[in-house]
Computed example of a mutant assay.
Amino acid sequence: MVMENISVIRADESNVQEAAGLFDLYRQFYGQKSAIESCTEYLQERQRLDESTVFFAKDTNGNVLGFTQLYPAFSSISLRRDLVLNDLFVLEKARGRGIARKLLQAAKEHAQKVNSKGLLLETDILNANAQALYESFGFERITDHYFYYLNV
């Protein structure tokens, strides 16, 4: 399929609200109730405090079709930054058009620009489509570590 002209834009405090609707849909996908105002405030605060990097994809009509959000992490061992690719979402009607790949490319270029060691992400073990995308992009599955989580 021929890819129409899609722009990937780095969000800032003045335009991040454009991605808030998709951020809300993303959260609903994971079982959360719609909370568009809270989503907007959350994204704006992350930008204001420089706590995350958001990229969003728009078509020539100005429709926002996808977004990704990166959070910084730091490695004491390597003495370098890692970026956690925490969120990646493309509207269902826009999937299969290369938008997720464009967002991943923007994330990769940003990681290189800020001298990050790499990008880390996680996905559900049943999400074969996402796994195929990530592996085709060059991500490697980590098999020699366990990850643990503590609710507090």
Rank of each mutant, 00 (worst) to 15 (best):
S116A: 15
R81C: 10
Y42I: 02
T68M: 07
F137W: 06
R141A: 09
L85D: 01
Q32T: 06
A132S: 13
S14I: 07
N86L: 01
V8S: 03
Y149H: 15
V16E: 03
M1A: 14
R81A: 07
L79S: 13
Y26E: 00
I9Y: 05
V152K: 10
A94H: 04
F29L: 12
Q131S: 03
S7L: 07
I9H: 03
Q17K: 14
V16D: 07
F89L: 05
S76I: 11
S75C: 02
Y148H: 08
L150C: 06
L104K: 06
A94K: 07
V84P: 00
D87R: 00
L79H: 14
N86Q: 11
R97Y: 08
Q44S: 07
Y42E: 13
L103N: 00
A57L: 04
Q112M: 11
Y148Q: 01
V152N: 07
R141M: 08
N61G: 04
R95F: 06
N61H: 13
Q69H: 05
Y148K: 02
R80W: 14
A57W: 10
T143H: 11
K33T: 13
M1G: 15
K33R: 12
E122T: 12
V90L: 00
T53A: 02
E51P: 00
R97V: 02
E109A: 08
E109I: 03
S116T: 03
Y146R: 09
R101W: 03
Y30M: 00
E109H: 09
S52H: 07
F147Q: 14
F56Q: 05
A100S: 12
S78H: 15
N129W: 07
R27E: 04
N151T: 15
F137N: 01
R95W: 04
G31D: 04
L85Q: 01
L70M: 06
V2Y: 12
Y146M: 06
Q131I: 08
I36V: 13
G138H: 05
Y26F: 14
A73K: 10
L91C: 10
I6Y: 11
F147D: 09
N15Y: 06
V152E: 10
N86K: 11
L103Q: 01
R141Y: 05
G96H: 03
A19Q: 01
F29E: 06
N5H: 14
L85R: 04
R141S: 07
V54F: 11
L103G: 01
S78Y: 15
N127P: 02
R141W: 08
A107D: 04
A130N: 00
Y146E: 11
S75L: 06
L85A: 01
E18L: 12
N61K: 13
D59C: 08
E45G: 04
E122M: 03
Q17G: 05
L91A: 09
Y71P: 02
S14H: 14
V114G: 05
V16T: 02
K33H: 10
T143C: 03
D82A: 05
G96M: 05
L49N: 15
A19F: 00
L120P: 04
D50C: 01
N5T: 15
D144W: 08
K108W: 13
L43R: 03
I36C: 01
T60A: 10
E45C: 03
T53G: 00
K117M: 14
K58E: 13
F55D: 04
L49V: 13
F56D: 09
H110I: 02
V114N: 09
L65K: 08
L65C: 02
R97C: 09
R101E: 09
D59L: 09
K102H: 08
N5S: 13
R101S: 09
V8G: 08
N15A: 01
N151I: 10
